[in-house]
Computed example of a mutant assay.
Amino acid sequence: MSEASSSSSREKQGSIPPGMVMGPDGKPCKICTAFRHWKPPANASKSTAQSQKSSATVMAAIAAETASSKTSPSATDTRPDYCPPDVEQLGRATWTFLHTTAAYYPEKPTPTQRVNMLTLIRALPVLYPCTHCASHLGETMKEHPPDVSGRVGLSRWFCERHNEVNERLGKEKFDCSIQKLDERWKDGPSDGSCD
């Protein structure tokens, strides 16, 4: 998702680091970019980066400092705890919230509960911080309207939307059977390892 949508922006903005996503304002979008992609271009010097004060150079400086302060090869991919979330952390937290909310949604919701759930879902394409993710969800919702008829329908709807994102990102799909969804988001495995 972000790689494809950033390629046309990259052409317009000149050379930006691979994986960096441009926001609708034409500037690098911190919340739309995975932390591991907050790296300075190979030809940028530290003094130039500090003098420009743009969000891209600030993000690059954070990544460079983090990389130099740690010795492990994966250090540049690790976001320090004191940093704002990146697109991956925000995505995981959002999916956790949505799947768990669906798992506890009533089997037979009242009209008010249905309206409230629809309001929550419809707010995401408008309010979600990653504009690329938000606009994609909005388009997807036009093709596949949310199912707020009950817990099972809502859980499957979120799982199917999540699997669409996973597929675009080259990740494995999740089994959307209600048994697997309940095991993951509500009850835990039958072996009691989560009790």
Rank of each mutant, 00 (worst) to 15 (best):
N166D: 07
T119P: 01
Y128K: 09
Q50T: 10
H136P: 00
L118T: 05
G170S: 04
P85E: 13
E164W: 08
V58L: 02
A93V: 04
P125R: 02
N43P: 00
Q13F: 08
E65H: 09
C159A: 11
D175M: 01
S55W: 07
P73C: 09
S68D: 14
S155K: 08
T112L: 14
E160I: 06
L181A: 02
L127C: 11
A34K: 10
D77W: 05
S72F: 06
P80I: 05
P84K: 13
M59T: 06
R122E: 14
P84G: 11
D175F: 03
N43R: 13
S55A: 10
E167N: 08
K186A: 13
Y128F: 15
S135D: 15
S68H: 07
Q113G: 04
A102Q: 05
K173G: 01
S149Y: 00
K180P: 01
D86G: 03
Y104F: 15
E107H: 10
M20G: 04
E139C: 09
E143Y: 08
T131W: 07
K46Y: 00
D25W: 06
T94H: 09
C32L: 03
G19C: 05
G192T: 04
E88R: 06
T78G: 02
E3Y: 10
P106M: 12
W185H: 15
E65I: 11
M59F: 05
A67L: 08
N166R: 15
P145N: 04
T131V: 10
Q13E: 12
E143C: 04
S69D: 13
A134V: 04
M22I: 15
S55P: 04
H162P: 00
C159W: 06
E164P: 02
F158N: 03
A75G: 08
V115M: 12
S74P: 01
T100Q: 13
P41H: 00
Q13I: 10
H144E: 10
D191A: 00
C83V: 10
A67D: 11
P41W: 04
P189Y: 01
R79V: 01
T57W: 00
T100K: 12
E167K: 15
G150H: 04
E172P: 02
A42N: 11
Q13T: 11
W185E: 10
E11T: 13
F97M: 15
L118S: 11
H37G: 00
T131E: 15
R184T: 14
W38H: 10
Q179P: 00
V126S: 09
V21E: 06
T94E: 14
A103P: 09
S47F: 05
S190E: 15
E143A: 15
D77A: 11
A102F: 04
S15A: 14
S8G: 14
L137R: 08
L154F: 03
K39P: 01
P111T: 03
Q50M: 12
S54P: 01
H37Y: 12
S68Q: 14
W157A: 02
H136N: 11
F174S: 09
P84E: 13
A61H: 04
S193Q: 12
A4E: 11
K46E: 04
M59C: 15
F97V: 08
R10K: 11
P24M: 12
A102G: 02
S9G: 10
T48W: 12
L120P: 07
A61D: 13
